[in-house]
Amino acid sequence: MAKKKQVLYPVVFMVVLTVFFTFLLSFINLATSETIEEQQALVIQRSVLYVFNLDGNGSDEDVQKMFTDTIDIEVKDNRNIYIYKDKNQVKGYAFDFSGKGLWGTITGHIAITPDHKEILGINFVSHSETPGLGGRIDEEEFKSQFRNLVMADPTIVLNKDTGGNLDAISGATLTSLAVRDMVNLNIPEILEFAREEGFYEGN
């Protein structure tokens, strides 16, 4: 009988411990879910403001106000379209995009002019690229190359020295190629979608 108790005690202890920590984690998740959602919304708002070259580096309150004052959101086919307006005039459209990076999925936003002739900016919201190498796609030096980038066919060509419109990240050529391919694949689909849904200010 004593032997059974010795075996049963650790089993019961582990069950009680597991139940306790499960309830604890559930409580923490419930208590912080609203804060997490707010922070995730701020990440998106900052990203959208960035691709439109608007200041998204202020306080949370400043970012929320600027986003509310300048950006309209429409949803078409379960897709968010961010519309930047200044004095009731459309200055650009931004879209979610995603694609395969070197180590995982890269997601972000890309903005285009109302006439679909230029990329206004690009930003990456999440990725799994190596810090210090492919992770440098977050750096301004790389992202700034997309500012007011005229769209052509193909949209993105690496190596400015040989006539391209984008320089690869030193030491992270594969990630640079992945971003190139991602943009080149997403842009035609985004333009087609935008035209079909009426997000186009051109002839």
Rank of each mutant, 00 (worst) to 15 (best):
M1F: 14
K3C: 02
K3S: 11
K4S: 09
K5D: 11
V7Q: 10
V11Y: 07
V11N: 05
M14D: 10
M14G: 07
V16W: 01
T18M: 05
T18L: 08
V19F: 09
F20E: 04
F21H: 08
T22H: 08
F23A: 15
L24P: 02
L24W: 09
I28R: 15
I28A: 14
N29I: 08
N29F: 10
N29L: 09
T32M: 08
S33R: 09
T35M: 08
E38F: 09
Q40I: 14
Q40D: 11
A41H: 03
L42C: 05
V43I: 12
I44L: 02
F52Q: 04
N53D: 12
N53F: 10
G56L: 03
N57W: 00
S59E: 04
E61K: 10
D62I: 07
D62E: 12
V63I: 14
V63E: 04
V63N: 02
V63C: 02
Q64Y: 12
M66K: 04
F67K: 02
I71T: 03
D72W: 06
D72N: 11
D72P: 03
E74F: 02
V75P: 03
D77F: 07
N78D: 15
R79P: 00
I81C: 12
I81Y: 15
Y82M: 13
Y82Q: 13
Y84H: 15
K85Q: 13
K87Y: 08
N88P: 02
N88H: 15
Q89Y: 06
Q89P: 00
K91H: 03
Y93V: 00
F95K: 06
K100D: 14
W103T: 04
G104T: 03
G108M: 11
H109F: 15
I110W: 09
I110R: 06
T113V: 02
D115H: 01
H116F: 08
K117G: 05
E118A: 05
E118H: 15
N123M: 02
N123P: 01
F124E: 02
V125L: 13
V125A: 12
S126K: 15
S126D: 15
S126F: 15
H127G: 02
H127L: 07
H127Q: 14
S128L: 12
E129Q: 02
T130N: 12
P131W: 08
L133A: 07
G134H: 13
I137Q: 07
E140T: 09
E140N: 05
E141K: 10
F142Y: 10
F142H: 07
K143G: 05
K143W: 05
K143E: 07
S144G: 01
Q145P: 03
F146H: 15
F146Q: 11
L149Y: 06
A152L: 10
I156M: 06
K160A: 03
D161G: 00
D161E: 04
T162R: 00
G164K: 01
G164A: 00
L166N: 07
L166F: 08
A168E: 10
G171Y: 04
G171A: 03
T173W: 06
T173R: 02
L174D: 06
S176K: 01
S176I: 08
S176Y: 11
L177S: 13
N184M: 00
N184Q: 05
N186M: 10
N186F: 09
N186Y: 09
I187D: 01
P188N: 00
F193V: 01
F193R: 07
A194S: 10
A194E: 10
E197S: 06
E197R: 15
Y200M: 12
N203M: 05
